[in-house]
Structure formats: structure tokens, C-alpha cells
Design a protein around this nucleic acid. Sequence first.
DNA 1: TTGAAACTTGAACCAACATTCAACTTAGAA
DNA 2: TTCTAAGTTGAATGTTGGTTCAAGTTTCAA
Lengths: 207, 207
Amino acid sequence: MATEYSEHIESKDKQPRTARGLKTKRKLLDAAALEFGEKGFHEASITGITQRAGTALGSFYTYFDSKDELFSALVKDMSARVKSHAAEAMTEWQNALEREKQALEAFMTFAREHKEIYRIIDEAEFVDPASYRAHYEETAKRIFERLQDGSAAGDFRGGLEEAHAWAIMGMNVFLGLRYGIWSEEKSPGEIAELAKSLLAEGIAKKG
Amino acid sequence: MATEYSEHIESKDKQPRTARGLKTKRKLLDAAALEFGEKGFHEASITGITQRAGTALGSFYTYFDSKDELFSALVKDMSARVKSHAAEAMTEWQNALEREKQALEAFMTFAREHKEIYRIIDEAEFVDPASYRAHYEETAKRIFERLQDGSAAGDFRGGLEEAHAWAIMGMNVFLGLRYGIWSEEKSPGEIAELAKSLLAEGIAKKG
DNA sequence: TTGAAACTTGAACCAACATTCAACTTAGAA
DNA sequence: TTCTAAGTTGAATGTTGGTTCAAGTTTCAA
């Protein structure tokens, strides 16, 4: 899983200046995502990261100021990647409801390919609370905007609030955890379809 | 907030045998809930806990085998308390939809009074994964049973699955975080009503 | 009243890392 | 080719904080 780490990951004056340095930094970043995903922030060690990366312990500090700073960068990166992955998956759509389905399906697919994501973002609640909060607030805002679009387009009813976005986000996160990470007994498509119908008409008996 | 800690908290041979011991243990438990809730597992220290409790460092080990064991007990206790608090709030109900509303409202009220709960249960993902999983699996199972009851009673449609329960749980957890812990700009009643209508009829435009 | 069990105390121990650093190697511009 | 900046290395440092323990105090049943 080759990954592109974006600018926010670069700290002030620790940018690699040669091809060799760039390669080393990328190895460290990828190793760190694995290590943190597997062991969690506190159980993970710099030694473990540099061992996975195949570099010396000291090299870590050539590119990062601290363990916290690295983790923080990783959280922001993960957050950005979920976002862009979902965005890509929602290019063509005719119906706002269908679009929500696509968003969940894309998220679940991404989660299956990057099981570290839950551990890293969840642990940010403790290690980097600001990023944790920012991640969910931004995600909710994005969902809310889609809801408003949907209302304007006549697909959704009016009067939808920020809270509806939070409800949907919570639904997505938990479905992703249960059916993306803990087990794969149901496909993202199935789960997304089920969520879509819940969103469309609720679960009350008609009549 | 005086709390009752239930049996699972007692470890094999470390039960207090006198009134004095019982009192000390309870002080430690309450202090721990605060300390963990405030700082999280790793930032919290035994020293901090015993200081809050007003006991000597060594006393901690008269009642607990380790920091992990204590945390584990606390997670199970919190989980049990959320459960029983919700159960109490759902005594009288005529309609399954109304009952779900009551469950969420009770949960949010509980969360506001015990803001530690999120940090403690969330951090269990790292410190005591088995308890974390058990908490959510049991909660989902309980919701699923209510859904089946509701279908049988003719309030909910048929064909509801475990995944619906997970979706509802996720919704509740995130609404609780956003409007119970992060801000209190909306009352539990308002939020619960909003969730009820989402659950009842979804958000698609009728017609 | 008394003595053994229960409980309390906090200094000392110890292992686990995060971080530093000075010596060394490599890259690549001039 | 040469020379300096960039990068690499891993042993050593230092701190933090969980856990132990031996000496003291309190409880309470007999």
C-alpha cells in the first residue's frame, strides 16, 4: 500500500533534501502507520517503527521532532485520505440518497483496506484531541452540506439539521467498524443498501 | 456523584474485610474514574489516583493487582451502569418508537452526568479490547431485541437485522458525544425527538 | 484486654522507552 | 575530483511511573 503523505506531514525544517532522505522518510511513515495501527500509540515504540522501516533509531529524529508529532501528522493524513477517497467515489450521482449510499460504501471499502484507520483516529481522542475533534466536525459538516443539497434538489425533506448529519456519521462509523473491520460477513454494498433504506424511509411500519 | 460498584469489580482475594477497607476501596474507585476520565489511561497515574483518594500509594495494591486490572473493572462497571440506567428509563412505553426515543434520551442524560464515560469506554479499545467489544456487542444485541419486539408489536416493519441495531447504536453514540459531552446547546429531549423522527420515517421527501 | 489479621504507608526499585549526540558515511554540486 | 551539506548510526542518557516491600498502625473477635 504505497501512500502519499501530504504537506501537513512536513515539519518546518526537517524536510528531506535528497532523494535518499525522501525515501527514508516515506519508509518511516509507512512503518509508523503499521506500528500504530497494530499496537496503538503507547504500545508502539520508535524502535519498533525504525526496525520495520529498516533504518537506525536515530534516523527517526532526522525527520520528526517527536513521537507525538508523527502521530499527529498521521491522524491528519488519515483524515484527509478518508475524505478524498469518499469524494472520488461520489463523482456521478443522480439522487442524494444514492449519493449517501455511495459515501458509506466507499468508506467501508477504504476501512477494509486500511484497518489501521480506526485505531489511529480513535486514539487521537487521547493523543491529539484537537485533530480528533476536527476530523469529526469536518466530516459532519460535509455530510450536512450534502443533506442541504439533497433538500434543495427535492430528494430529502426540509428542516434537516446538523444533528441529522451527526446521526448519519455515527451510523456510518459503527457500521464500518462492525462490518468493515471486525468481520466481513456482509459486503459494503449490502450494508450501504440497508443504511440507504433506513435513511430513506425509516423503520416504522407503514400505514 | 456517589457510585455503587458492583461485584465484577472485586478481584479474587483482594476484597476488603473491614468497613475501613471497604471505604478505602470505594475512594480509590471514585478517584480512578475521575482520573481516567480526565487524563485518559496513560496520562493517569496511580500516584494521581491515590492522591485524589487521599490514601498512600501502596494502598492501591491492597485492592488492585495492577493499573490495567482497575481500568478493566471500571470499563465493565461503566458499561453495566449505562445499561441499567437506560433500562430503568424504559419502564412504561406504548410504542416501540417512543421506547427508542426514551433510550437515547436516558443515555444522553447519563452521559452529561458522567462525562468520563466516553473516555473510559473509548480507551478500552486499546487497554482492554475484549471489554470494549463486549460492551458494543451487548448493546447492539439489546437494541436488536427491542427492534424485534417492535416488529412483533406492529410498530416497526419486518426484516430488521442486526445491522440496523448497529446503525442505531452508532447514531446514539455520536449524538451523545456531540450533544451530551461536547456541548449542551440542545437538550436530550430535542435530540431524541429528532432521532425518533429519523428512525420513524427517514429523511427522504415524501411522494 | 489482647493478639493476629487487616490495613496503611512511602521510600526504593526497576524496566521501558523517548530523546540526544558525536562519530561516521554518502550524495551531488561545482 | 573534491568538499560540504545531508543523511545515518546506535550507544548512552535521563525520566517517568508502575510495582514491591518491610515496617508501622488500626480493627475487632474472642
